[in-house]
């Protein structure tokens, strides 16, 4: 490596280059030369067995009921509302939390920043400023009912990754039309592979001490979800 501080996209040093060749040569000779060049072995990949369940079979109502049940099993709090009621529901959740300072992604629908609270919109907030927020409100990309998972792609309405990490209380707005039944159905909704993803299944937890599940180690201890019953 050069003596200067490395920058993104910098190249590794000559020792690494020698090892690169050595490792790739060994790997190729171990696999009898297969996987040569950059071309993906597409035919073999296409032939892989994929007989597992891709598409869910539940009705729309049952799918949403499952999503709610699975979220609650993780100790997440879930409430439902109509699109017309959403802003009022957000206000009710924030009030019930007893907290006052909330962070919000810069692309969050401005109607959701209900008055009466101290909002910190993420126009390049510092880590210290986010750390001072008691809670955070964001949108999300998808909900997977089978595992009660919320998926963030960190779009402007979903926020930078740090935003949903430091505050202790997290309210996520999930629309019914975003809920799929199976994990493969989420992957089908990704027209392009995303650059950043966080799959969230319940609040931060550990079972490292005698396998006793404890909520909230480093991430948010409290996960709240508002399920908006838009067209499904």
């Amino acid at each position: 490596m050069s003596a200067t501080v490395s920058t993104p996209g910098s190249t590794p040093g000559p020792a690494s280059g020698q090892s690169r060749k050595r490792i790739l040569d060994r790997v190729r000779s171990a696999t009898h030369g297969s996987g040569h060049g950059f071309a993906e072995p597409a035919d073999a990949y296409a032939a892989l067995p994929r007989t597992y369940v891709r598409r869910g079979t539940l009705t729309a109502e049952a799918r949403l009921a499952l999503m709610i049940e699975r979220l609650r099993e993780y100790d997440a709090e879930v409430i439902e509302c109509t699109p017309a009621n959403l802003v009022a529901s957000i206000a009710a959740q924030l009030t019930a939390s007893g907290k006052h300072t909330f962070a919000a992604p810069e692309g969050l629908n401005s109607d959701w920043l209900v008055p009466g609270f101290d909002w910190k919109a993420d126009h390049r907030l510092t880590t210290a400023e986010i750390e001072q927020a008691e809670g955070v409100v964001t949108a999300c990309f998808c909900g997977v009912a089978d595992s009660g998972t919320i998926v963030l792609h960190h779009s402007p309405a979903e926020g930078r990754r740090v935003l949903t990490l430091l505050p202790d209380w997290y309210l996520c707005i999930l629309r019914a039309s975003q809920v799929v039944e199976t994990l493969p159905e989420y992957f089908d909704r990704c027209t392009q592979p995303p650059v950043l993803v966080t799959w969230i299944s319940g609040p931060s937890a550990t079972a490292d001490i005698e396998m006793t599940r404890i909520k909230g180690v480093h991430g948010p201890r409290f996960l709240h979800v508002i399920l908006v019953r838009d067209e499904i």
């Binding site: 490395s6 993104p8 996209g9 590794p12 690169r20 790997v27 696999t31 996987g35 993906e40 073999a44």
Partner: peptide, 25 residues
Amino acid sequence: ENLGAYLEEFETRCTAAGGTVHWAA
């Protein structure tokens, strides 16, 4: 079975996205 190709593909994509890939024997 195709580890060589996939490793090189990973390296190329990761580098293009601003990462630096090092190899250790």
